[in-house]
Nucleic acid binder design. Structure first.
Lengths: 258, 258
DNA sequence: CGTAAAATTGACTGACTTCAAATTCGGTGG
DNA sequence: CCACCGAATTTGAAGTCAGTCAATTTTACG
């Protein structure tokens, strides 16, 4: 019944983190109508001000939320990894209040908003899981605000790296101390409210101190605990303990995707 | 049927902004079980890490969300005004990821989380309204992040003042250019990621330029348009146009509360 | 290879912080 | 009504973290 490489399987896996879904719920999630869309580098998934027509599940690649300020500055608000539902925020409101873009090329499953609304209110377990997904996104956003508002460049950058690593590992997409990070230093600067030059100096300083190594688009953290201490990183805000832990065999098979 | 000064009326008024509720829905909202709780200055509504037992509707006074950082700093994440449901975020998750406190003394209606979950999933219109309430909170949080991350002290402070004024007016609690703001400059500093000294200099500069006047706990904005221009304030992120605009006569009567 | 984008480096600047002291405010009790 | 006291605000001077500007090097990729 469950196809091991069903496009929506990563989404299902994620939803089952937030609420236990019975077999009918799971089937209903996988039966959601969708269309695959491929976007190239910096392609827009959602534009600020547009009326939402689809909810997008990120299948491969990385995406980010972003807001443009009058003075031309850009604030990157969140990073998304495969399995994330990239614009649930917008799907239940009239119009998008921010942009969503992909970093590198990415594949998305586009689900019509009507179908999402329908499943959310017809199947309360799925609805709860979806709601929690948006609430955890909100929690990450609060942490991000605190990070930008109260920490210095070194702490801020460290926290960002810890969050990326932890979330990727939590999603089953790699190891927290060794992961792919396809952003430029300019992107990172816009995410952390710093300048590219200062991000560069900060990253180099972490490298010099033996905490990290950067190569290409990949990040290696040599001393996770030390970095987490600098960052004051506590994964509680990601609500990992909410994990329903009821992942049936048929679905765990897709955990390696992609 | 509708009591004009029912404690939950401000909450109902707010929910009807986000989705049209039929008479049965409205009755169900007002029939939610609750207990009134009075908190004095800086009292805690929710503590970081605690398991939620109630969702709290702010009836009078102002509240704020807050996170403490290892270095002792505090980031104020959001301000809440009467009618706001102060911890929906926490109610659907296992444990709170931030603190909620009141500024001055405040009155809250404490609704058991089970009752909220029940109404949310039994009455889909109410559920949608509650969900949207949390989504708009998320949108405000994104704006807050962008504000702290990308704007200078003057723009940041102006944006904060515009948001306060606009939201109070939108909630029917006053005029955008003349409102009560019972925070110290230290609070404001923690909200905007600045130091109290610099907030002071910034506020004085706005005063000196004839844009604002501060008296006691009140704020007067003399030139809203000028302040909004400095702030790059666009109320779209508050999703005012989502207003269901179907406010029945019986309920509008309470718009003057408190 | 050649080229454009990204990363790195250096010198200088400035917005905001820090520290510390003075002043005003707001509530309270004599 | 006024004197008092702690909290909040205001002021000044000096310091710093991060920004700016501009040039150079490295990397990615056709």
């Amino acid at each position: 019944m469950f196809q091991h490489s069903h496009a929506l399987a990563p989404m299902l896996r994620k939803l089952m983190r937030w609420a236990p879904l019975d077999e009918a719920d799971q089937r209903a999630v996988l039966a959601l109508p969708y269309a695959i869309r491929t976007l190239s580098r910096t392609g827009y998934v959602v534009r600020d001000g547009s009326a939402p027509t689809h909810s997008c599940v990120l299948l491969s690649g990385y995406a980010f939320r972003q807001k443009l300020i009058a003075n031309g500055c850009r604030q990157i608000l969140a990073i998304h990894i495969p399995g994330d539902i990239v614009d649930l925020q917008n799907s239940f409101l009239d119009r998008a209040d921010h942009n969503v873009q992909v970093f590198t090329g990415a594949e998305l499953a586009m689900v019509p908003v009507e179908a999402v609304r329908d499943i959310a209110f017809r199947r309360s377990a799925v609805g709860l899981a979806l709601w929690r997904e948006t609430l955890v996104d909100g929690s990450i956003q609060r942490q991000w605000t605190a990070n930008v508002g109260q920490r210095n460049a070194r702490e801020r950058t460290s926290h960002f790296l810890c969050e990326c690593g932890y979330r990727l590992e939590f999603a089953g997409l790699g190891h927290r101390a060794r992961f792919n990070l396809p952003m430029t230093q300019e992107d990172m600067a816009d995410a952390l409210g710093l300048t590219p030059v200062h991000i560069n100096r900060t990253l180099m300083s972490l490298d010099r101190d033996g905490l990290t190594t950067r190569r290409r688009n990949s990040m290696v953290i040599h001393d996770w605990d030390a970095l987490a201490t600098i960052a004051d990183f506590d994964p509680g805000y990601l609500h990992p303990e909410n994990d329903a832990k009821v992942i049936p065999v048929a679905v765990t098979g897709i955990a390696t995707f992609p």
